[in-house]
Design a protein around this nucleic acid. Structure first.
Lengths: 113, 113
DNA sequence: CGCATACTTAGCTACATGGCTAAGTATGAC
DNA sequence: GTCATACTTAGCCATGTAGCTAAGTATGCG
C-alpha cells in the first residue's frame, strides 16, 4: 500500500506546479525535445531539467536520448492513476449523497403520505 | 490565468500527500470532527491540523466550528478542478492519437490501394 | 466555580523544492 | 580536427513543507 501511496504522491505532486502542467499540456499535442519544451519558459535550462526529471520520476512522461537531443513524450495512460483515484473518491461521495437523498425522500413520504 | 494556475497548484499539491488523501477518503464517507479525523494518524495534533489547513486552502474541504469541536466535510465538487484538467489533457492526447491512426490508415491505403 | 476536553497558536528543527551560475560532456556540421 | 549545439552535472542559496513540544484559548459538564 505504501508503494501505491508513494506513486500517487509523486504523481499528484508533479501536477502541483504550473510549469510542469504546461509541459504536459504541450506534450499532449505531441512529442518534443528538451530544447523545444524549454523555449517558452523564462528559466535556466538546469532548472527546467529539474521539472522534466520530476515528471519522469512520477511516470507522467518518458524520455529518450536521440543523438544529442532528448525527446520527451507523455507516458502511456499518463493520467490514469490520478483520474482513477479521483473517480473512486467521487463515487464514494456520490453514493453517500444518493443515500442521503433517499433518506430525505423517505422522511418526506412519512410526513406527506 | 495565473489565478487558475494557483488554484490548481494548491489543489494538486494538497493531493500529493498520502495523509491528506486519506483524510479526503474518510470525508468522502461523511463529515467528521478534527479529533475523529486525527485519531488514525500517528501524528501530533498541531501537525495534523497543518494538513487540514492545506486541504481547506486548496478548496477541497470546508470546516466550521460547532461548540468546541470543528466539523469537516468535503467541499461541493471538491475534485472537479483536478478531474476537469486531467480530462482536458487526455482529450487532447486522445485526439492526437486518433489523428495519428487516421494518418497511418492513409499511408496504408496509399501503399495497398 | 473548577476542571477536562478539543482544539489552537507560537516557535523551533530538519529536509525538500525550485531557482541560479559555472563548468563539463557528447554529438553533428564543416 | 574544430567548433557550435544540446544537454548535463556540480554546487550554492532562499523558501516552503512537515514534523515536533510547550503553552494558550474556549466550551461543556458537574
Amino acid at each position: 500500500m505504501a508503494k501505491y501511496d508513494d506513486r500517487l504522491d509523486r504523481h499528484f505532486s508533479a501536477l502541483g506546479d504550473a510549469t510542469r502542467r504546461s509541459i504536459l499540456a504541450r506534450l499532449a499535442r505531441g512529442r518534443a525535445t528538451v530544447g523545444e519544451l524549454a523555449a517558452p519558459h523564462d528559466m535556466s535550462l538546469p532548472s527546467f531539467l529539474g521539472h522534466l526529471r520530476k515528471l519522469e520520476e512520477a511516470g507522467l512522461i518518458t524520455t529518450a536520448k536521440d543523438g544529442r537531443v532528448r525527446v520527451c513524450q507523455l507516458a502511456p495512460d499518463a493520467f490514469a492513476p490520478a483520474q482513477d483515484w479521483l473517480a473512486e473518491q467521487r463515487e464514494i461521495w456520490t453514493g453517500r449523497l444518493d443515500r442521503f437523498d433517499a433518506y430525505v425522500a423517505t422522511l418526506k413520504n412519512e410526513r406527506d403520505p
